[in-house]
Amino acid sequence: MRTEHMALLTHDVLLLPEGRVELKVVEPANLRMVADVCKARCQLAVGMSRGTGSPPCYPLATQCRIIDFNQLEDDALSLVLEGVQRVKILSGAQQSDGGWMIRCLQCPNWQQEPIAGEFAIISQALAQFYEVNPALQELYPQLHLEDACWVSQRWLEVLPMYNRDKIKLLSQPDCHQTMAFVLQLIKSHGH
């Protein structure tokens, strides 16, 4: 497999394929990297912050594309990113201005599959979650509540869990363990 070089944004949020997130970019190094991405000099990846390490994020990240941006009053930049492809970070190099470039390999994205049986409750709960969080729902022109992969990835993005626990679920070959985990959460809070 061929390795790729990408600019890296680290953040507390998790972004997965077909997911969307709005991030505020303030640091000059990150603003420069966003400019390089917009000029097609490199691709962009988002990784969950780990605080230490080189690079300072977990080894699984998501290649993404910028689908919208706005200049904020404080001169920061608001970016809406859409996840495209999972990547495994092989190495990272910090640039002179503090930004990070990574060398990575593409990882297989989870495959789409229909939600069936008792797992339908997970889709219903996600639809309710978006109803009470309209700012998140506005990021999506369409909700794919029939797709187990899409639903489980959106749950991983929003559940308040330790990042290391999210990484364990993401390391699985498909969405089945995540679906079982979310179903168990919903059942345990329903009683």
Score class of each variant (00 low, 15 high):
4 E>Q: 12
5 H>V: 13
6 M>E: 00
7 A>P: 04
12 D>Y: 07
13 V>N: 11
17 P>D: 11
17 P>T: 11
17 P>L: 06
18 E>V: 00
22 E>F: 00
24 K>H: 13
26 V>K: 08
31 L>T: 06
33 M>D: 12
34 V>F: 05
38 C>W: 10
40 A>M: 08
41 R>Q: 14
41 R>P: 00
44 L>W: 03
46 V>W: 08
46 V>E: 07
58 Y>K: 01
60 L>N: 05
62 T>A: 03
62 T>E: 01
63 Q>G: 04
72 L>D: 10
76 A>V: 05
77 L>V: 15
77 L>H: 03
79 L>H: 10
79 L>E: 12
84 V>E: 15
84 V>F: 01
86 R>D: 10
89 I>L: 07
89 I>C: 07
91 S>F: 03
101 M>F: 05
102 I>G: 03
102 I>K: 01
103 R>A: 12
104 C>T: 11
105 L>K: 14
111 Q>W: 08
112 Q>V: 08
115 I>G: 03
117 G>M: 01
119 F>Q: 14
120 A>F: 09
120 A>V: 13
124 Q>P: 00
130 Y>D: 13
132 V>F: 01
133 N>V: 06
135 A>F: 10
142 Q>N: 01
146 E>K: 07
146 E>P: 00
149 C>Y: 01
151 V>P: 07
157 E>K: 00
161 M>N: 06
162 Y>C: 07
168 K>F: 06
168 K>C: 07
171 S>R: 13
172 Q>M: 13
172 Q>H: 11
175 C>L: 05
176 H>S: 14
180 A>F: 03
184 Q>L: 06
185 L>H: 10
186 I>A: 04
189 H>T: 11
